[in-house]
Design a protein around this nucleic acid. Structure first.
Length: 958
RNA sequence: GCGGAAGUCGCCCAGCCCGGUCAAAGGCGUAAGGUUUAGGCCCUUAUCUCUUAGGGGUUCGUGGGUUCAAAUCCCACCUUCCGCACCA
């Protein structure tokens, strides 16, 4: 048993002492690798480890390739969840405190401090950082910071001011979920049950009743042309209110909602719903009276509590009308009016007749307006009409328009003509704030936005994206799509940790806006942390000069009191490290952070400093399931490291899935990998550098295999196909090595230590970005001086020995064939005889191979050509040979075909005679005889020799 | 609905871009053998199906098509997953 924790600690200490990961500009070419910094509101678990591990492998690989790699890390304190947590601690929230205690093992005295949000962040910051160190991430910790550090805030002030100067920040109104009690916006983590307030826009159509406006809320403004009546609930008491100078009648709930929607509301009186029934109102656009009728499906908390009735296209309306027509207890004069009402059809949809609502109701067998299937009917009709419907002639100027288009056109027309207004309403009511109050939608009038709608900005971002590498490729269209639909985005909020808006101190820069160009800050922060520059000296002129070379260093020095030389040095370091060469992140950040990262870079920096690459990875599942607190399947990273070691976890995460796929993590695979590494370590301990003697065929072969492994692996890593790469080092190469050992053992060789040492040294070097600790240990055991993490990446020399590859392939396939024959015949072999093909067959073979490589696979044509040639004409007696040879060749890798084409003087008989006997003896414990097909004195009792083909000798087993 | 991804031999998952290397890698599981006092770990072999000569048959969501040749290219359909915002 090996002590993983001890080995890992040993090497972590060495890395720390040697300061290998502290990166300063030098004469080498640089690579700047960054990964989205963590939000410290909980310890990190295995899932968090994925992105960082991928980035670390990337960084370590590039370092070995000879680049000067900067891989820094910061901590994102900005945001509201931590604030919410602190609030819950203050309130003594049992569940949360229990989580801290039992799930996160936070010491009791620390939990007490958690009523202060920064303490929570500080605690988990240290926790996460320790985990990162224990995972062996090659981070330059001199550049660590948090987003509430004074210097960082200076940087964010500069960023946000710069954006504003470019007119990319605008002010406007914006609806948010709102708690009326707390007087604060609410989002998912502020609500009971963690529901995200979700709202939608209703169109308020204003019908007139004498001096009053009767507003009805609808999602389908285009159906106004089919209105036949209104619905009121007779049991509701409605409010008479004054709204911006107009008299409205709406439900009490609606009046309450309106108060938050930027309307001035005064209460003037009440009226019963039943009193409204029978009254006639004016339709806004056509001066036509329609009657108000009672309906029980009308709810006071939805819309205005009064509904516009379009029986032709709305199943609820149609059914309510039918119910009324059939009702017995309706007053006579009213009943007469009701009987007169006919549905007005205004939309034509394929598959539906004149009154779609009726058809849907009949189809579902709906009996009355209380039937829950009405929802289904409504959905079906809405879907069909919206995407497939057209407005009919009776819609006037809108006739012929598709419903999908007409909806917005009619809406805008209604609003322009003052026939309608807007009502925003929560769709997932009730949403309750953690304080218990029911939330509403509020329009904030002085909200600040990043104007991501800006066309030129989008164009620039698209250009940047087009010039960038996006890994894996499949994700690229998603970025383009996001840039397309992005609109104004609020960039400030009223509470939470973060930086105040410099020009409006009531607002705090929102967390997805203060995390977009901070990679540039990694250059600065080194000087802040070393006390070379003070936060207070970081005025805008400093950043202007360092990042954009605006102004001159003399003036900047005067203003900031920073030495001119220092300023020049920082500018030079910025120029050296920027742009970002690769940004790693999870795919959940594609529609927000990663896209904003691109947008903000192009807004602020000149083209030469635009980002070069984005690498996106999927999430991590635990035994096929999503990790979640409630499922109890979260494994804290640090605990996993203690139990299994950092390297096995790193490998298990990487090997379980390719980049974009969700990685399924399970503990069995961790122990599997652990054992693999342990046996590799053992192997390395055995090997010493030793002089290599004369190379045997299998030596040449394995060396060639090693060469191709190096070049395959390198290109895999370059494409960030780390799973594939790791798989090659750990498993695929293993099977080549097994064959090699089999060959070596068959020959009873003892002189292979040197070669195995060379092979394993290369493997360990290639393993080192993935499993850095154990690779160092292996490297040391192999007797290398220095550390493998600072050694150079193995170079693939171009020497691939085609002859050796071909030879070993032949030997393997003969062994396979023998085993196959034995399996089928179940005989115990006494003696094996092999016959190699005649030389004219070889010529034919090459000729066929040549034709196939040129794309000709037609048997007839190939045959004709062969017969036409004197050297191969003999083949006409043996058409089966041609058929089979074509098949042989087609079932080979193209690589091997090329090799065979190049090598003409391949002596099968000689190879088999000298190399195969030992193998056959070892595997089957019998003697081997070899003849050529053309050998007149051959032993061939069963007349097998004639079936021999090149690379497919005939075999006789007795 | 819009946008994206995906359906492979018990399970997980490669291969698809660039058609022939594909009955299709690897891991897990299962079975047999070796090692071990025993178990675990480890090693070997097998793991769609038929076959007493290295061979054949049927497979890669479903149905078509292109091609000498399709898991791979094209079309249609079915199913599943993810994102759709002011939240990190």
């Amino acid at each position: 048993m090996i002590d993983w924790n001890r080995i890992e600690e040993k090497w972590r200490k060495k890395w720390q002492e040697s300061k290998d990961f502290e990166t300063n500009p030098n004469s080498k070419e640089k690579k700047f690798i960054t990964v989205a910094y963590p939000y410290p509101n909980s310890p990190q678990h295995i899932g968090h480890g994925r992105t960082y591990t991928l980035a670390d492998v990337h960084a370590r690989f590039l370092r070995m390739k000879g680049y000067n790699v900067l891989f820094p890390m910061g901590f994102h304190y900005t945001g509201t969840p931590i604030l919410g947590m602190a609030k819950r601690v203050q309130e003594g929230d049992k569940e949360l405190i229990q989580n801290f205690r039992e799930l996160y093992h936070v010491p009791e005295d620390k939990i007490k401090e958690f009523s202060e949000p920064v303490k929570i962040a500080d605690y988990f910051h240290e926790e996460i950082k320790s985990g990162m160190i224990e995972m062996g991430y090659s981070i330059d910790w001199r550049r660590e910071f948090t987003t509430i550090d004074p210097a960082y805030q200076k940087f964010i002030e500069w960023q946000i001011n710069t954006l504003r100067k470019k007119n990319l920040i605008i002010q406007g109104s914006h609806p948010v979920g709102w708690c009326p009690k707390d007087q604060n916006p609410v989002s998912q983590h502020d609500t009971l049950g963690d529901v995200e307030p979700d709202f939608t826009e209703y169109i308020l159509i204003k019908f007139r009743l004498e001096d009053y406006v009767i507003p009805t809320a609808t999602l389908r403004p285009e159906t106004i042309f089919g209105v036949t009546n209104l619905w009121v609930n007779p049991d509701i008491v409605y409010k008479k209110i004054k709204v911006d100078g107009e008299n409205w009648i709406v439900s009490a709930e609606c009046a309450h909602k309106l108060e938050y929607l930027d309307k001035k509301v005064t209460y003037e009186g009440e009226i019963k719903g039943s009193e409204l029934c029978g009254k006639k109102v004016q339709v806004p656009h056509r001066n036509d009276p329609v009657i108000m009728l009672p309906a029980s499906f009308v709810e006071s908390h939805t819309g205005t509590g009064i509904v516009m009735s379009v029986p032709a296209h709305a199943p609820f309306d149609y059914q309510a009308l039918q119910d009324l027509k059939n009702a017995k207890d309706v007053e006579k004069s009213l009943a007469k009016e009701i009987q007169k009402i006919e549905a007005i059809s205004i939309i034509e949809t394929e598959g539906f007749g004149n009154i779609p609502a009726k058809e849907a109701i009949d189809k579902l067998g709906i009996k009355d307006q209380k039937d829950s299937k009405l929802e289904e009917a409504t959905k079906e009709i809405y879907g069909k009409e919206f995407y497939g419907g057209k407005l009919k002639q009776n819609t006037g100027q809108f006739a012929g328009k598709k419903v999908a288009d007409a909806k917005d056109i009619v809406k805008n027309w209604l609003i322009k003509e003052k026939f309608a207004g807007i009502l925003l309403e929560l769709t997932n009511v009730p949403v309750r704030c953690r304080c218990g109050a029911e939330c509403v939608v509020k329009i904030l009038n002085n909200q600040w936005f990043l104007n991501y709608s800006d066309k030129l900005w989008k164009e620039k971002a698209t250009k940047c994206l087009d010039g960038m590498s996006v890994l894996p490729q499949e994700i690229r269209p998603e970025f383009n799509y996001v840039i397309g639909w992005l609109r104004e985005r609020a960039c400030a909020r009223q509470h939470g940790l973060g930086t105040k808006l410099p020009w409006d101190k009531d607002w705090i820069v929102e967390s997805l806006s203060d995390s977009v160009i901070y990679m540039a800050y990694y250059i600065i922060v080194k000087f802040v942390n070393s006390n070379e520059i003070k936060p207070e000296s970081l005025g805008p002129e400093f950043f202007d000069y360092v990042f954009l070379e605006l102004g001159d260093s003399n003036t900047v020095s005067e203003k900031t009191k920073i030495q001119k030389e220092k300023i020049e040095q920082i500018r030079k370091e910025f120029l050296y490290f920027y742009p970002v060469d690769s940004r790693h992140s999870g795919r959940d950040l594609v529609p927000n952070h990663l896209t904003f990262f691109v947008l903000n870079h192009v807004a602020i920096f000149p083209e030469e400093n635009w980002p070069q690459e984005i690498v996106v990875n999927g999430s991590v599942l635990m035994d096929g399931k999503k990790m979640s607190k409630s499922m109890g399947n979260i494994i804290p990273l640090r605990k996993a490291i203690r139990d299994y070691g950092a390297d096995p976890i790193r490998l298990a995460i990487i090997i379980s899935a390719e980049l974009l796929q969700d990685a399924d993590f399970n503990l069995e695979s961790v122990s599997g990998i652990k054992h693999k590494l342990e046996s590799l370590l053992e192997e390395c301990s055995r090997l010493k550098p030793e002089k290599q003697g004369k190379l045997e065929p299998e030596d040449k072969w394995i060396k060639s295999k090693l060469q191709s492994a190096v070049s395959d692996l390198t290109s895999s890593i370059e494409k960030m196909r780390l799973r594939e790469a790791l798989h090659n080092i750990l498993f695929s190469f293993e099977s080549d090595l097994q064959w090699y050992m089999k060959r070596v053992n068959a020959k009873h060789r003892t002189d292979t230590l040197g070669i195995l040492h060379e092979i394993n040294s290369t493997r360990v070097a290639m393993l080192s970005p993935f499993a850095p600790h154990i690779a160092e240990e292996m490297w040391e055991k192999l007797g290398h001086a220095g550390m493998v993490s600072t050694s150079s990446w193995p170079q693939a020399s171009e020497k691939i020995d085609g002859y050796a590859i071909q030879s070993e392939e032949l030997l393997k396939s003969i062994i396979d064939d023998i085993a196959n024959i034995l399996k089928v015949t179940k005989i115990t072999p006494q003696k094996i005889t092999i016959y190699t093909a005649d030389s004219f067959k070889s010529k034919a073979y090459h000729s066929i191979l040549d034709k196939i490589m040129n794309g000709q696979t037609n048997m007839g044509i190939i045959m004709k050509d062969l017969i036409a040639n004197k050297e191969t004409e003999e083949i006409k007696k043996n058409p089966d040979f041609v058929q089979r040879t074509i098949k042989d060749i087609l079932s080979e890798p193209t690589e091997l075909r090329k090799t065979k084409l190049e090598i003409l003087d391949f002596d099968e008989k000689e190879l088999i005679a000298s190399e195969l006997s030992g193998l056959v003896k070892a595997d089957f414990d019998v003697e081997l005889q070899v003849f050529s097909e053309s050998d007149p004195s051959k032993y061939d009792p069963k007349n097998k020799a004639k079936t021999a083909r090149p690379f497919k000798p005939a075999i006789l087993i007795e």
